[in-house]
Write a protein that binds this DNA or RNA. Structure first.
Lengths: 184, 184
DNA sequence: TTGACTAGGCTAACTGTGTTAGCCACATCG
DNA sequence: CGATGTGGCTAACACAGTTAGCCTAGTCAA
């Protein structure tokens, strides 16, 4: 998600049907029980096979996670692009933030996987990150405001997912305060 | 780091001398080679003992990590408090952000450990988080602006640590853009 | 001085993790 | 018919955290 210059939506990586089933099962585990539950043995069991058989379809666990990250970035990127595109230019920033918040909190485990820790860019479609972050550049004007806005949005989401805000927090109002700050 | 009402600096947790040596060695591993290098066997080896002996001083690996997190939050909290206290109220926001950025990037592995993922609050001194985040409330005025500002700062730092910005990014200017947005 | 207790080490071993080597059954197709 | 590719299997390895049980040296009270 690095807002740079104009980038087209990159092509999805090719997957065999069986691999697609494996990735789908992995995503189900991730969504249901979190990344620490996503073990090769658990995944294999859900598929009705044994763990070593997974390596007929995936080279690594890292490659499997990269597939999940790819899907997450495509889904989120689509949501952000459509949020920024829809009506007119006015209000694009608010719509972008709403879309960012809702699409990330809808699948918190996917979001955390896709946006935390080091990213194996060599396992992802080239340009995917840049394309997904594109809407921020559109909504914020300059590159710097775009990155600052993204930092704010990511901070909000990841801190909420990781349960870092006090229980009594009114995060709606915090989002509004941030949006107001960046609205000029 | 949850800015709420006024909180005093909590007391450090008590540690036996030997435990303090263990924690210090763990911090050295963390700083040098990252959290994934911090294994019980590696830590024991650095101390010249065997892994099971560590359990004479620490109940869990989680408790060990909690000790590292505690130290990180105290260090960072002190830096933030002193940044906000120093001269006058004017410019407190800019000084706070500078202190946040520099003190976190000074020890990126500590910062990531302390601020990412679920926090075992039951293993930390009560009130530590709130005290450490206190300066944000002072600098931002309202609770909501405080949380939004913290989200921005955390997003900036963690995305830089995790290498999520494009290589050509001028993060100085991005920080300035964010600071300007929150300055009103 | 002796005995109890504590601190702090040790080895052996268990479970769960990712992963590899090597084998085997079946389908497809020249 | 036979070759080849697909997709399973078992056995096994290295390394993770962790536990049980044992041993040694020091401290300290009776």
């Amino acid at each position: 998600m690095l807002p740079t210059e104009q980038t087209a939506r990159p092509p999805r990586s090719g997957r065999t049907p069986r691999l697609q089933q494996v990735v789908a099962a992995a995503q189900a585990v991730l969504d249901a029980d979190g990344i620490e539950a996503l073990t090769m043995r658990r995944l294999a069991e859900d598929l009705g096979i044994k763990a070593p058989s997974l390596y007929k379809h995936v080279s690594d666990k890292a490659a499997l996670e990269a597939a999940l990250i790819e899907d997450a970035l495509f889904t989120m990127g689509d949501a952000l692009h459509s949020a920024v595109r829809t009506p007119g230019r006015a209000g694009a920033l608010a719509r972008l933030l709403r879309a960012y918040r809702s699409s990330s909190l809808e699948h918190p485990n996917r979001y955390r996987l896709a946006t935390s820790g080091q990213l194996r860019r060599d396992l992802l479609p080239e340009g995917l990150e840049g394309w997904a972050g594109q809407p921020f550049l559109f909504a914020a004007g300059t590159r710097f405001r775009s990155q600052a806005l993204w930092s704010f949005a990511h901070g909000m989401v990841i801190l909420e997912i990781d349960d870092r805000y006090p229980a009594e927090s009114d995060l709606d109002r915090t989002w509004k305060a941030g949006a107001a700050a960046f609205a000029h």
